[in-house]
C-alpha cells in the first residue's frame, strides 16, 4: 500500500498540474463550443508555445513566465491567420474538411519543429529566484505555474462574461444567424475566437515547459489530454473546464501512483465520459 503522505502529495501535485490542463483545455473548449470545430492541432500549438518560451529563455535568459506572453502573441496571430486563410474556406461545409485541414496542420507543425529543433527533449528553467518561497513539499515551479494558469482562466472567463466582445462571442456561439442580424461580424468573431483559443494553448505550453520535457511529438498526447478535460467539463463551459482540468490532473497522478499507468488513465476517463455522458459532467452540450 502507498503511504498516505505520498498519496496526499500526489493529489496536491495533481491539482497544481490540473490548473495548467484547464488552461490548455480552455482554448480547445472555446473553439469547439463557439465554432463547432475540434482543433486537432491544439496539442501541437501548445508544443509550439512551449518551444517559443524555451528558445527565448535559451537565447536571452528571459523567464518563461514572460516568454509566455510572446507565445500567446505569436499563437494569437497564428490562430487568426489560420482561420482567415484556411479554415474560413471550409467551415460550415461538413466536418471532414476542417478535421483534415487541422490534422494536416498538426503534422506540419510537428515536423517543422523537428526540423528546426531536432527531436531531443528540451525543458526550461523557471528563471526567477525562489529563495523567498517555501511551502514545504509544494514544488515552487508547480505552485507558480498553477497560480498563473488559474489567473489566466479567470481573466478569460471575465473577458467572455463582461466585455462587449465577450458578449458578442457568446451571442455568436448561441445563434450565429441571430448574431449577424444584430450587427455582429461573425467572421471576425470566429477569427478572434480561434486566436484566443490558440493563444491559450501557447500560454499553457510555456507553463508546461517549466515542468516537463518537451519534444516535437508531445502534441497528440496533450491534444487527447485536453480533450479529455473538455469532455469532462462540458464543451464551452469555463468553470466546467477548470473542474475537468483538476480532476484529470489528480486522476493522472493517482493512476501513476497506484496503477503505474499515467496516460492511459486520462484516456480511459475520456472514453468513458464520452460514452456515458457526452455533454460533460457540468456541461450544457455546447450551447454556450
Amino acid at each position: 500500500m502507498v503511504a498516505t503522505g505520498v498519496a496526499v502529495e500526489a493529489v496536491v501535485n495533481g491539482l497544481l498540474l490540473g490548473g495548467i490542463y484547464a488552461l490548455a483545455a480552455l482554448g480547445l473548449s472555446l473553439v469547439f463550443g463557439i465554432m463547432d470545430v475540434v482543433n486537432l492541432a491544439h496539442g501541437h500549438m501548445l508544443m509550439v508555445g512551449a518551444y517559443l518560451a524555451i528558445v527565448l529563455l535559451a537565447a536571452t535568459g528571459i523567464t518563461p513566465l514572460v516568454g509566455m506572453f510572446l507565445a500567446m502573441g505569436v499563437l494569437f496571430v497564428f490562430g487568426v491567420a489560420l482561420q482567415r486563410v484556411l479554415l474560413e474556406r471550409v467551415v460550415g461545409e461538413g466536418i471532414e474538411q476542417p478535421i483534415i485541414v487541422l490534422f494536416g496542420l498538426a503534422l506540419v507543425l510537428q515536423n517543422v519543429a523537428r526540423i528546426l529543433l531536432s527531436g531531443d527533449a528540451r525543458t526550461a528553467d523557471i528563471g526567477i529566484p525562489r529563495g523567498w518561497f517555501d511551502l514545504g513539499f509544494l514544488s515552487f515551479e508547480r505552485t507558480v505555474t498553477f497560480v498563473v494558469a488559474v489567473v489566466l482562466v479567470a481573466l478569460t472567463w471575465a473577458f467572455l462574461q463582461y466585455t462587449r466582445t465577450g458578449q458578442a462571442i457568446r451571442a455568436t456561439a448561441q445563434n450565429p444567424d441571430a448574431a449577424r442580424h444584430m450587427g455582429i461580424d461573425t467572421d471576425r468573431i470566429y477569427a478572434l475566437t480561434l486566436g484566443v483559443g490558440t493563444a491559450l494553448a501557447g500560454a499553457a505550453g510555456a507553463l508546461l515547459a517549466m515542468l516537463f520535457p518537451i519534444t516535437p511529438f508531445v502534441g497528440w498526447s496533450y491534444l487527447l489530454k485536453t480533450f479529455a478535460v473538455v469532455v469532462l467539463g462540458g464543451v464551452g463551459s469555463v468553470p466546467g473546464t477548470l473542474v475537468g482540468g483538476l480532476v484529470i490532473g489528480v486522476a493522472e497522478n493517482l493512476g501513476d501512483l497506484y496503477l503505474g499507468y499515467r496516460n492511459v488513465v486520462s484516456l480511459l476517463i475520456f472514453l468513458v465520459v464520452l460514452l456515458v455522458r457526452p455533454q460533460g459532467l457540468l456541461g450544457t452540450g455546447g450551447e454556450e
Binding site: F32, D36, V37, V38, L40, I95, I99, W220, S221, L223, L224, F227, A228, Y261, N263, V264, L267, L268, F270, L271, L274, L275, P278
Partner: peptide, 22 residues
Amino acid sequence: IFRLRGHYFAIGTLALAAVIEL
C-alpha cells in the same frame, strides 16, 4: 464508439488507438 458522432467520433477513435498502442 458509434454513440459518438462527427468530431467526437474522430477524436474518440484517435484516443482509442492511443489506448491500444499504450
